[in-house]
Structures are given as C-alpha cells and as structure tokens.
C-alpha cells in the first residue's frame, strides 16, 4: 500500500511549484513534490527530464527562477549550498565529485565540517580567529570533539565493508569508479543528514556491485529511520526494491507519482520512459 502523502506541515521536504529554465529549456517546470520523514522516494524519467536539476535546486547549487523549497520548516530557496548542507541536506553528484588529491579519510572528515564548527541553524562554534587559534593549540574540548568525529567517520567508512576502510590512506583519485561513488555517499552520509540525495549512485557499477549498494541503501534506510532519501535511478529493479514512492519526471514536470508497481505500469510512463528500454535491459544504459 502506498504511504499517504505527507501534508505540508508534517513533510520533511516540500518542493512547491519550482521552475528553472536554461535558455529555452525548462529543465524543471512548476514542479511540486513532498517527501515524508524516513521516506525513500525514487525519481525516474528519461534523460534530460530534469532529475539532476531538481537536486541542484534542492541543494542550492542552482537558484530556482521561482517557487520555494522547504526542509523541516526552513526555507532553502535563496540560501547558499553550504547553509543548505548545514540544515541537513547531503548529496552525491551524478558525475561523482571526489577531492582528487585528498585521502579517503580526509574526504570523509571534510563531510563533518558542520558538526565541527557549527553553522545554520545553530550558531558557529568558532569565529575564524578562534578557529585558527584552536587549530594551533588543540585544546581538550576540540580534541574530544574530533575524537567523536573520528569514530563517526570510521563507522561510516566501515558501512561499506572492506571497500573503503582498508584504503582510507589512499588518494581519492586512485580509487576505482565504483569506490569513488561509495566515497561520495560516505561523505554525504557521515554528518547524518536528514535528507540524503543520491544521483544515480549505481551508474557504472556491475550487477554485483549494484546489488551490494542497493542492499546498503536499504540498510541505511532501515537503520536511520528518520533520514529521508531521494534516489535518482535508471535501474528500475533497484527502484522497485528500494523505493516506497516513485516520482516520474518528464520535460521538467511530473508525469506520474505513486507506488512503484502502479507508476511503472502506467501506460504514459511506459511510453515516455520504458518505451526506450523495451529490450528489457533495464538500466544497462550509461548516462552522461
């Protein structure tokens, strides 16, 4: 049974009539959608449907032309990406973006900046001068906090079995493609976001790796009951297994929305989306 849609007051994320145009292209067009706490929603749609643009708008990398986006009652639209991250949005990028020359360990520790120095909505713990002084003197309080963050980072890396933890001292650009994606997820996850945005996390992975990652996402979803996840995914069996709710986008707008079984059987969806994959190799296609 599909979960009842959250009303505006109890939703975690509310996207309200948001639009974004690039020149003549309406990448996102008057889109409204909401996500409940602890919900795992999948977003599917053909290439160029505006799925990634929706993510850029939520996390503030791109500003919406109009419409509003709210998270836990805070308005996100108009804020800078770092402020939105501090409000609890973690994300990965479709073309995985790791810090090439940083070690795996350092990359994950960067994801904990907000926990370390504070920020929206809490106040910052340091002003820039005290932060430099603290970095030089390393007072006990800072050491304790860093130790807690170290443990958190270690636990997060170990979520990925022996994929990342044994490689924690390696440079990020020495990792395999699949491991870079894992590292990005670890970085987005480590500070315990209330909303996690995953943009095609299994792209470029073989079936075994895909299943492993899908299991991990399912586990995260089960263990972090409060965390909402939005997953953009072309591999429809992954969507069926993981998501309780599916949004189908086409040309920037909503084509259909509902439970995976209903939505993916909808003739309009089949035409707009599955029609191009009628060979049955759901998700084998690589997008760029």
């Amino acid at each position: 049974m599909p979960p009842t849609r959250p009303t505006v007051t109890d939703a975690r994320l509310v996207v309200d009539r948001v639009s974004k145009r690039f020149g003549g292209v309406a990448a996102v067009d008057q889109l409204s959608v909401s996500v409940a706490p602890g919900e795992l929603m999948a977003v599917v749609g053909p290439n160029g449907a505006g799925k990634s643009t929706l993510f850029q708008l939520i996390n503030g990398v791109i500003r919406a032309d109009n419409g509003t986006i709210r998270l836990n009652g805070h308005t996100l639209t108009g804020r800078a990406p770092e402020a939105i991250a501090a409000l609890g949005v973690g994300r990965t990028f479709q073309t995985s973006r790791v810090f090439p020359a940083l070690s795996v360990w350092d990359s994950v520790r960067v994801g904990q900046t907000v926990s370390l120095i504070g920020g929206t909505p809490s106040r910052r713990r340091f002003d820039p001068v005290t932060e430099i002084a603290a970095a030089l003197l390393r007072p006990g309080g800072l050491k304790r906090r860093e130790r807690a963050l170290d443990e958190q980072a270690e636990a997060t890396l170990k979520l990925f079995g022996d994929r990342l933890w044994p490689r924690r001292h390696d440079r990020a650009d020495s990792l395999s493609y699949a491991n870079r994606r894992r590292l990005e997820i670890a970085r987005a996850l480590v500070d315990r976001p209330s909303l996690l945005l995953l943009d095609e996390p299994t792209a470029g992975m073989n079936p075994t790796e895909t299943n492993e990652l899908a299991d991990l996402i399912a586990r995260l979803h089960a263990e972090h009951g409060e965390m909402s996840i939005i997953l953009v995914e072309h591999k429809l069996d992954v969507v069926r297994n993981l998501a309780s709710h599916v949004l189908v986008m086409d040309r920037g707008g909503r084509l259909a929305e509902g439970s995976p079984d209903d939505v993916l059987a909808d003739p309009r969806v089949v035409e707009a989306y599955l029609g191009r994959r009628a060979d049955g190799s759901a998700g084998a296609e690589q997008t760029t």
Binding site: N59, V61, A80, P81, E82, A85, A86, G90, R91, F93, R97, V98, F99, P100, A101, L102, D106, S107, R109, V110, G111, T113, V114, L116, G119, E131, I132, A135, L136, R138, E146, E184, R187, A188, D191
Partner: peptide
C-alpha cells in the same frame, strides 16, 4: 595538518563538492 588545512585542500580540489558537504568556502 589541522582541520583548517584539510578544509583548504578540499576547497582547492573541488569547491563545489566542498560546499555541498557543508564547507563555508
């Protein structure tokens, strides 16, 4: 070697990823 230096290098390596991870660049 501290968090500050690490954050500097992260911004240098990928500023977009850094701000998305909550770094006030």
């Amino acid at each position: 070697q501290s968090n500050v230096g690490r954050t500097w290098r992260a911004i240098r390596e990928d500023r977009l990823a850094a701000v998305a991870a909550g770094v006030p660049a």
